[in-house]
Computed example of a mutant assay.
Amino acid sequence: MQQQTEQLSDGQRLNAAQIWAFLAKAAVGRLATHDHAHNQSNLTPLFFVCEAPHIYFATQPGHKLNLLRRYPQGVGLQADAFDPESSTSVFVWGRYRDVPLGAEYAHATRLLAFKYGTGFWQQILDQATKALKAGPRAVITTISQATTGCIQIERIGGRRWEHGL
């Protein structure tokens, strides 16, 4: 029996405006980090907002945040979309930093709340509830270590493939 394989083209390269427009609409991406001490790469689903040349996201204490702070260079974000007519994939690479309390922090929080609405606030409530169950010390740790993060974008790339499914 002869097997048919669909040949994929290299796709159409997206320009910067198309990439930023795509990222603005993307519901979720995958954060790529690398733990150099253990030579282990990590992919983490991430809710984010973009405002060129920044990607903002809220994050809680844990492995992801520890890696971002320890190895802030070479952080990536990848997002995809698929529909019957096309597939799109976008990658951005940059450097991580915590967003300090102040005007930028408030702006990033408003962007996240606007994009995700009640889902954003529900995520914060869920984290607070989880911390409350672990006791007062966990609440203080969660509040003091939670942050809004920023990836300062240094490189971008993306492609779109047309197809008829």
Rank of each mutant, 00 (worst) to 15 (best):
L46N: 00
P45L: 08
T147A: 10
L31V: 03
R159E: 11
L77R: 06
T33H: 05
T148E: 05
I124F: 07
N66E: 13
H54T: 03
L101H: 13
N66P: 08
F91I: 15
G102W: 06
G119L: 09
G11C: 06
H54Q: 12
A17F: 02
S89N: 13
R137E: 14
W121T: 09
Q3A: 14
Q122W: 15
D10L: 06
C150W: 02
R160S: 11
E162L: 14
S9Y: 08
A16F: 01
Y96T: 00
R95Y: 12
G157M: 09
H163T: 04
P72R: 03
I55S: 03
R69V: 07
W161D: 05
G29Y: 01
R70K: 12
V75L: 05
A16S: 14
L68Y: 06
G102K: 04
I153D: 03
G29F: 02
L112Y: 08
L101T: 11
Q122T: 08
Y96H: 09
H36G: 03
Q3E: 11
S9I: 01
L8S: 10
L125V: 11
L23K: 04
G62K: 01
F48I: 01
L165V: 10
I156T: 03
G158L: 05
H63I: 02
K64E: 02
T88A: 05
E104W: 08
A24Y: 04
G164Y: 09
H34V: 12
L101D: 15
L14W: 03
S41H: 07
S86T: 14
G62S: 07
V139H: 02
G94L: 07
G76D: 11
K64P: 00
Q152F: 10
A26V: 04
S86C: 15
T44Q: 04
A32W: 09
K25Q: 15
N66F: 12
A106M: 11
E51I: 01
A24N: 09
E162A: 15
L43Q: 12
S9W: 10
L165P: 07
P53T: 05
T109D: 12
I151H: 00
K130V: 04
S9V: 05
M1T: 10
W121A: 08
V99T: 07
L67M: 13
E85Q: 15
L65Y: 00
Q60R: 15
T44K: 00
N66Q: 15
N15C: 07
L68G: 00
T109M: 13
T129L: 11
F47H: 13
V75P: 00
L101F: 12
F82G: 07
A128E: 02
W20Q: 01
H36K: 09
A106K: 10
T33V: 07
V99C: 04
I156R: 04
Y116T: 11
Q122F: 13
F22L: 08
Q152M: 14
G157L: 04
A32C: 13
A52F: 03
T59K: 02
T44G: 00
L165D: 14
A37M: 12
A113H: 10
Q123W: 07
